[in-house]
């Protein structure tokens, strides 16, 4: 994998995620409902990169998410673990089922968003007495928004990473 391109991509995504993506907030009065670019990248790399690259990329994306868009300020780790865990899981599953259609990609992004956010909240609860956040937003609206936007970003991200279609390690045992 082209790691330099990956680093630039993650950096740009995290900056966009933290700042510029607010313009995409729906409705504008709810800046918390916006697509999660790092989640979309997680699904992209987990489903298209080699398994070792995918695992590394998942943890790196989790680190970037904890740094730029944490579940709880002054706390890092929940997203590293949740992104790493579910990214690795998706990477393993991608060897048998590989989402390629837009709807399947959208469904995968939605499920990954809900799972990573749910686990992040639970992990954050281990360190903080209260983790106050809009559960419905984190578990439903944001993953849904990401699922709608995400599949359309796969093409430009694939172009940038020079990763078109499935990765070289994929065995064509089945398609979802």
């Amino acid at each position: 994998m082209r790691w330099f391109r990956f680093a630039v991509l993650v950096l740009v995504a995290s900056l966009l995620q933290t700042g510029l993506i607010r313009v995409l907030a729906v409705p504008p009065s709810r800046p918390d409902i916006r697509p999660d670019l790092l989640l979309i990248l997680l699904v992209f790399f987990a489903s298209r990169a080699k398994s070792t690259d995918a695992i590394l990329a998942s943890f790196a994306l989790g680190f970037a998410a904890d740094l730029s868009n944490p579940i709880l300020t002054r706390l890092m780790g929940p997203r590293i673990i949740s992104f790493g865990l579910f990214g690795s899981l998706l990477s393993d599953l991608s060897s048998t089922i590989s989402p390629r259609r837009m709807t399947h990609l959208a469904l995968t992004i939605f499920l990954m968003g809900s799972l990573t956010t749910g686990l992040s909240y639970l992990l954050a609860l281990l360190r903080a007495e209260t983790v106050v956040t809009a559960w419905r937003t984190g578990l439903l609206w944001q993953p849904l928004y990401s699922a709608i936007v995400g599949p359309f970003l796969f093409l430009p991200v694939g172009w940038w990473m020079r990763m078109y279609g499935k990765g070289p390690r994929r065995r064509r045992r089945g398609r979802l």
Binding site: S58, F59, M76, G77, G84, L123, L126
Partner: peptide
Amino acid sequence: SKGMLFTGGMLVGLIFLFLV
């Protein structure tokens, strides 16, 4: 290698979560 990477990543996450 995958296992070690995954374990390493999880350890980093757990260290950040509980020790840092």
